[in-house]
């Protein structure tokens, strides 16, 4: 695959949930290409379908219309080929397993050999800066460290795609800044394709190569913003005029999608 092949390709995607209060249009006519090595953020108010879109890509939801391909396969084939790692909003570590044990979980399920497991665990622990914490139980770690461990778990089996659903949403600002910086470095080192759901504008602008602005009822894409910031981004890039300019565009996009409310 070269740089210009879409890894994830969505065409006219629809998803309607039937509920007792009538149908809910979670996604309507969503089309998007995500290229190899992209870092794409999905931003929008709650109910705009950003999480649903991520779940459709992961084959955790079935679309009611349109098509998606992941690595040229259907999402379910991609899931069975273990094409992606998924990071949820909560770390969701198993309390009865150590940090190592948690990272080993997908490796056990996928049937890796023991020496290889060992080698992979050590490598991802190092990637997320948790060397020396492998033998600890989750409750012995802070919330930020637990979330890093869950990212390590998603990285352990080396899928090309990383899908992250508001992974830092429950963490405080300082920890979040730190993890954002780490995530950028990790993306740079591993050159994975990342889909990242957030509701924070600075986070989206700081991390992404492209920002997908979504709006609710029905959930749809209202704008796709190319991020022109350089790949190398120190934290204080957030005070530069370029950064603020892009953040402004995102805010405008969110407001436009929201205007019919109030």
């Amino acid at each position: 695959m070269n740089e210009n092949t879409p890894v994830i390709q969505a065409r006219n995607l629809d998803l309607t949930f039937e509920t007792n209060d009538g149908p809910i249009h979670a996604l309507q006519d969503v089309s998007l290409d995500i290229m190899k090595g992209d870092f794409v953020s999905f931003i929008g108010p709650s109910g705009c379908g950003k999480t649903t879109f991520l779940r459709v890509i992961a084959a955790l939801e079935e679309p009611t219309g349109g098509t998606v391909t992941v690595n040229g396969m259907t999402p379910d084939e991609a899931r069975r080929a273990r094409a992606y790692g998924y990071v949820f909003q909560a770390a969701g570590l198993y309390p009865w397993r150590t940090i190592e044990g948690n990272i080993r979980l997908p490796l056990e399920i996928m049937g890796f050999e023991r020496p290889e497991m060992r080698e992979r665990i050590d490598r991802v622990l190092q990637l997320v800066d948790l060397e020396g914490f492998g033998k600890k139980f989750p409750w012995q770690l802070s919330g930020g460290m637990q979330q890093r461990a869950s990212i390590a778990r998603a990285l352990a089996f080396d899928a090309d795609i990383l899908l992250m659903d508001e992974p830092f949403g429950a963490l405080d600002e300082i920890v979040r800044d730190h993890l954002n910086e780490q995530l950028l470095r990790l993306w740079d080192k591993t050159s994975k394709t990342i889909g990242f759901v957030t509701h924070s504008i600075p986070e989206a602008v700081y991390l992404s190569t492209r920002i997908v602005v979504m709006s609710p009822r029905p959930g749809r894409i209202t704008d796709v913003i190319e991020n022109t910031l350089p790949r190398d981004r120190p934290l204080d890039i957030r005070d530069t005029p370029e950064f603020l300019e892009i953040a402004h565009r995102v805010r405008e996009g969110l407001r436009a999608g929201h205007a019919y409310e109030d």
């Binding site: 992961a58 084959a59 955790l60 899931r79 069975r80 273990r82 992606y84 790692g85 998924y86 949820f88 909560a90 969701g92 198993y94 979980l105 997908p106 399920i109 996928m110």
Partner: peptide
Amino acid sequence: MMQLDLMRTYNA
């Protein structure tokens, strides 16, 4: 649900 979804993403 999240724990079960996680297992699903591993194709367990």
